[in-house]
């Protein structure tokens, strides 16, 4: 018993030690280079953490993070719901798919940041244009992967459903949706990353609050510590969301070999 738990601990150590060492090394390097640099350009890790703590205690960080989170969640959920629903419809209705395919391809390929000035002049500042930006960043990977997924279903599967006299609703519930979900999940995982970019970009251009504005104002006020504190928070959120995305994907895709 003791021996097996000991070897399990050794296994975990062997697996995670290089990662931990690398992380510690990176932070040490940051600390050293930061101490030698001009504070207008870079501050050490320790100063960043001090500033992070100040912002946290002062309440600014929590308020701005919540603000950003609301924007991210709204835009992301919209892009997931619209992307999956429209994807399924397009997979099923060939006329629509053929007609809309060029627009989808163009918009999927366009860097959405390029559209922000247009959205600004069209809708001005406010929550809705920001949500629109986040939505546009996220919707196309979901849409595209859903369409491709739903279309790749094997005719044999549909034949089995017909042979057992499945109705249309049961066909969607038992066959089309479970088959398509892993593909949609791949799109959703991509959308998480893109929506995060969209969130920061929207807050740069269309906002007076949120983590994006915290970065902007810190930068303009030569508050390099605040700048890196905000970047660190966004980093951590991004890593967390990515892991969530992979977990979701493997949860729904375990049956795909």
């Amino acid at each position: 018993m003791r021996e097996s738990s000991g070897s399990a601990a050794a296994y975990h150590l062997g697996r995670h030690l290089p990662f931990a060492l690398s992380l510690a090394g990176g932070l040490a390097l940051w600390e050293l280079v930061g101490r030698e640099s001009s504070p207008a350009f870079l501050v050490p890790f320790s100063t960043t953490m001090e500033r992070l703590w100040e912002l946290l205690v002062g309440g600014t960080l929590v308020a701005e993070t919540l603000d950003s989170a609301g924007l991210f969640a709204t835009g992301f959920l919209l892009s997931v719901v619209v992307g999956i629903a429209a994807g399924l419809v397009l997979a099923r209705v060939q006329v629509l798919r053929v007609a809309l395919e060029p627009y989808i391809m163009i918009l999927y390929a366009t860097p959405m940041v390029a559209l922000i000035p247009f959205i600004l002049s069209l809708m001005g500042f406010g929550f809705i244009p920001k949500v629109l930006v986040v939505f546009l960043f996220g919707v196309f990977p979901v849409l595209y992967n859903t369409v491709e997924g739903a279309r790749s279903i094997k005719p044999e599967m549909l034949e089995v459903a017909r042979s057992f006299r499945s109705g249309e609703r049961a066909l969607w519930r038992d066959v089309m949706l479970p088959y398509t979900l892993p593909f949609a999940m791949t799109g959703i995982r991509l959308a998480i990353g893109r929506c995060l970019v969209g969130m920061v970009a929207a807050e740069f251009f269309l906002s007076s609050n949120g983590l994006g504005q915290l970065i902007m104002s810190a930068s303009q006020n030569f508050d390099t510590g605040g700048l890196f504190a905000a970047i660190t928070v966004i980093c951590l959120i991004g890593v967390g969301l990515m892991r969530l995305g992979f977990a979701l994907e493997s949860r729904f895709a375990h049956w795909r070999k």
Binding site: E156, M157, E159, R162, S163, F164, R165, V175, P178, W255
Partner: peptide, 18 residues
């Protein structure tokens, strides 16, 4: 397809998510 007739498929035709 009618009730009371069942087919066994060469490719098995199982749903991999079930």
């Amino acid at each position: 397809p009618i009730a009371g007739v069942a087919m066994v498929f060469q490719h098995f035709g199982l749903f991999p998510w079930k």
